[in-house]
Design a protein around this nucleic acid. Structure first.
Lengths: 269, 269
DNA sequence: ACAAGCCATTTCGCATTGTGGAATATGATT
DNA sequence: AATCATATTCCACAATGCGAAATGGCTTGT
């Protein structure tokens, strides 16, 4: 339960560029999870592993700015309107969704698979859209849910879509988090990078879960609007590796191309 | 265009409790609007009115933490996965929506009005849910859009739902923002407070827009889960003041009661 | 109702840390 | 290749956030 946040402050000690107070304040917002209700100062201090007075000041600031609601009676905080407002803006900026949605649904219907669009959040991919075909029984992933960056086709496609300079530190973090699987992780990631160079998509055959097969493709939006990734997956008995290589993968790539040109058009003035 | 952020730093100079760096960092996230694409460091500096080196450090920090995406080629930033993740959590915590939705829709259908649920963001009410009846032609407000706190029934209902101690500073801000309408604003707010003490709802007769009538009711969730507000409104020729007082207003109050008990139930362990 | 205990907040000196002007590095454009 | 515009680094400065301990406010138990 006591999930400490991922980066100890001392790792940043020599980074004169990093604004600690900002990072800590955002950590306070992050420790609010979907499943739990309002949190007290104490619980926040415990979860962030920060001293109580520091938490007091951060929660005070966040409350002033409307990112936290404070209930004086109970002494508990909940996420405030400011966070909602930011979230709505972030969603509105996701033009991708509107454009990609119909294409994704089409593929999902045709293949009876599940087609998702994700953005990265730390070492996870965050689903921002998901279309399901008819045949899908298992595999319920709703917008807002997460899958791991390193061991899913979508995540590795995202990694492959990055420039070396952005990818390297992420891989460092991954290896630090899963030191035991170092060799196999590196191998899988490098294979995905090669696959995507060659064919535009990578495979996930039982990587995320043993009984789930899928493909992933990076989706780099024009005009610096960010990097996303598509996936297409389903139960292993429905999606054979061969089908993925010959059908689903290439179809994913087609979708990325259509989306990119479609959004590129709109960017023109 | 050059919309400076609302609180000059010097107003906080004597507030030893306020964490400036955190506030500034969040201001950087806030200046991203739904309509504009990725922004460069320069544009961010201009909009926040902060010196460039400060912006560099803040954007660096936010990028490190995944709240901003950086496109090295174009030198522009866009809101990143971290903001999305926060937004999804904030939305998931909005159990209110799920509970209130059917009740709101029912009222909207019966009355041919528009029934909204909002949370406060600074000096605005932010729609988090909106149900429209059949007859509604005008009045398109989608989730994520805003209406002013001081001059809308929903906003004044929210104000009336606050404790004095939280309300006072908000009213200060409002009056500072609209110094010319000071007297009428105070009068309207005080009337709303009295109305809500007496009947549980307040009126908005052509306040927000001249041709729109409506009612508002505060919705204080149990267990410190925050304060929200409902409204019910429509074109003035459809919703007469008398109907609002006798039908729509009381119906809004019923909804708030049902929602509160329904959520209160679930809170029990 | 009263007292006791428990949290949360505040106080304070200290030193970490963010600040901003000027200079430099970067990189895009002609 | 040179120039321009932009972003980053440098540095001294001091503002400001830090944490141990004390105060204050609140609920809980009798």
């Amino acid at each position: 339960m006591n999930e400490l946040l991922e980066k100890p402050d001392r790792m940043r000690a020599n980074d004169r560029q990093f604004v600690t107070a900002l990072g800590r304040g955002l950590d306070v917002l992050r420790i609010f999870r979907a499943e739990d209700g309002p949190l007290g100062n104490q619980e926040i201090a415990r979860r962030t592993a920060l001293p109580k007075p520091t938490i007091s000041r951060l929660t005070y600031t966040l409350t002033q700015l409307g990112y936290l609601n404070y209930d004086r009676k109970l002494g508990v905080y909940s996420l405030g309107g400011g966070v909602l407002a930011l979230g709505y803006v972030a969603l509105a900026n996701l033009d991708v969704r509107r454009v990609a949605r119909p294409l994704m649904q089409e593929l999902a219907d045709e293949c009876g698979a599940s087609v998702g669009l994700g953005a990265r959040d730390r070492l996870n991919m965050l689903y921002v859209e998901n279309c399901e075909g008819q045949n899908i029984v298992a595999l319920r992933v709703a917008a807002g849910s997460r899958i791991p960056l390193a061991t899913s086709a979508m995540g590795r496609a995202y990694l492959a879509g990055l420039q070396d300079r952005e990818r390297a530190p992420l891989i460092d973090q991954i290896l630090r988090k899963y030191p035991d699987d170092k060799a196999s992780l590196i191998r899988a990631i490098e294979k995905s990078i090669r696959d995507i160079e060659k064919r535009g998509f990578c495979l996930g055959i039982g990587d995320w879960r043993k009984d789930v097969n899928g493909a992933g493709a990076p989706l780099a939006l024009p005009n610096g609007a960010g990097l996303y990734a598509l996936n297409c997956g389903g139960p292993a008995y429905l999606l054979k590796a061969k089908d993925i290589e010959e059908v689903y993968g290439p179809r994913l790539v087609e979708i990325t191309k259509k989306v990119v040109t479609s959004i590129g058009m709109k960017g023109r003035r």
